[in-house]
């Protein structure tokens, strides 16, 4: 799990699956992303083939907290079959989802 900066955007790149074994680390890392001074946050899931409902809860929680702090968290790169999971939980109704990090960066540059 790596956090880095690209222009005005802070990106958290997840490189592993998120299971019961590492969901606490994911929670801590997402909190670090939220605490970053940047207003524009990306959670990049392009290398993630598996995440559990605990991870979904953490993402939703941080997205709402970001809004409260006048920041915005978006998700990029959701892979199949995880895209089905995100449709079931209707995350697109309260946060933006992009195919790639580049699309999300373009979105933030226009806002």
């Amino acid at each position: 799990m790596q956090i880095y900066q690209r222009s005005r955007v802070t990106i958290l790149d997840i490189k592993s699956e998120i299971t019961i074994k590492n969901s606490d680390l994911f929670r801590t890392t997402m909190q670090r992303l939220l605490n970053h001074p940047s207003l524009h946050l990306i959670l990049n899931l392009e290398h993630v083939t598996y995440l559990n409902s605990s991870a979904l809860g953490i993402i939703a929680d941080i997205a709402i907290k970001a809004k409260e702090a006048e920041k915005e968290l978006v998700i990029t790169g959701i892979q199949s079959p995880m895209n089905e999971i995100f449709e079931v939980v209707k995350f697109d109704t309260f946060m933006k989802i992009f195919s790639t990090a580049e699309e999300a960066i373009d979105y933030f540059e226009q806002h």
């Binding site: 809860g57 953490i58 929680d61 939980v89």
Partner: peptide, 16 residues
């Protein structure tokens, strides 16, 4: 309803 909380998605996922 859309769930924006930390918990409560596991059963819905299993059913799907």
């Amino acid at each position: 309803d859309v769930n924006t909380g930390l918990r409560g998605r596991g059963i819905a996922l299993m059913v799907h």
